[in-house]
């Protein structure tokens, strides 16, 4: 890979990272919010590196920058020999070690993908296959606030249903937001209200889900807010209780910017 090409690749990579982290929220489809400052810094660093490389390539092309061995021809991009030689290795190994191997071109794929054709956040396809999030044990449960409908996260709902011996959730109307994942064929009635949570990047996605009965399934991957009551079964407060609701209403909700968290539903404006 020649020097000007390296400069272009570095500049593009820097732009791609800045585009994903500074000017847009694209990076939240792939990594956690906490990574954002690191990505901005990386993007800036790559831009600097690319600019420095472009500057020194340009300097070398102008006559005063030339160092003698150079036979630049009239085509701008066809100039000279790979300059890695001159300052990298003049102690003779036969071939060009300073030239970056072609495999570096592969970096262009994620960079262009970020800039032009960014894939969406993970959705129902992954949720139906990802490992279920282990809901950690909680010993002590505070009394539930008296607001109705009660906003809850999917994790909190799971805990209240399967761990709270006080059964505070019984008879309460709850409200939760997530996206729609269809139940596998032959899996019975209803559908899943789902969230995907990640701890580092989208490669370690796990899903939290609550089964919804009593409402027709919206199309997969639609974000909805479900209001409903616990779907009775088993013994409430033990793992025999189904994590499910009987829906009273299902309303479309905007897709949250930071989708990989199990957050409370946004207050509705109705």
């Amino acid at each position: 890979m020649r020097r000007p090409a390296q400069a272009i690749l570095l500049l593009l990579a820097g732009l791609g990272l800045l585009h994903a982290s500074l000017w847009t929220d694209l990076c939240l489809r792939y990594v956690k919010e906490g990574m954002r400052p690191l990505l901005v810094a990386s993007g800036a660093l790559l831009l600097l590196l690319g600019a420095a490389e472009a500057w020194s390539s340009f300097r070398r092309r102008t006559p005063e920058g030339r160092d003698g061995q150079d036979h630049g021809d009239e085509h701008g991009h066809e100039h000279g020999h790979d300059h890695g030689h001159e300052h990298g290795h003049d102690h003779g190994h036969g071939h060009d070690h300073a030239g970056v191997p072609r495999v570096a071109w592969l970096l262009l794929l994620p960079v262009l993908s970020l800039l032009l054709y960014a894939p969406p956040a993970l959705g129902s396809y992954t949720a139906s296959r990802a490992a279920p999030e282990t809901v950690s044990r909680q010993e002590h449960f505070d009394p539930l606030p008296s607001t109705s409908p009660l906003p809850l996260t999917l994790t909190d709902f799971t805990r209240r249903v399967q761990q709270d011996r006080g059964q505070a959730i019984r008879g309460r109307t709850v409200r939760m937001t997530g996206f729609v994942t269809p139940v596998r064929r032959g899996g019975g009635a209803g559908w899943y209200l789902t969230r995907i949570v990640i701890s580092c990047c989208a490669a370690d996605a796990r899903s939290v889900r609550v089964r919804v009965y009593g409402a027709a399934a919206p199309p997969a991957d639609t974000w909805v807010t479900v209001t409903g009551t616990w779907h009775p079964g088993g013994r409430l407060g033990t793992s025999s209780a189904p994590v499910a609701v009987d829906a009273h209403s299902v309303v479309k909700a905007p897709r949250p910017v930071n989708a990989y968290t199990d957050a409370l539903p946004l207050p509705t404006t109705r």
Binding site: V31, M35, A41, Y125, C201
Partner: peptide
């Protein structure tokens, strides 16, 4: 869906590792 998930995960691993 499978290819889309593949692209997302592939990009996620790259972006996450970059810094």
């Amino acid at each position: 869906p499978a290819v889309r998930a593949w692209r997302t995960v592939c990009l996620a691993v790259t972006v996450q590792a970059m810094p």
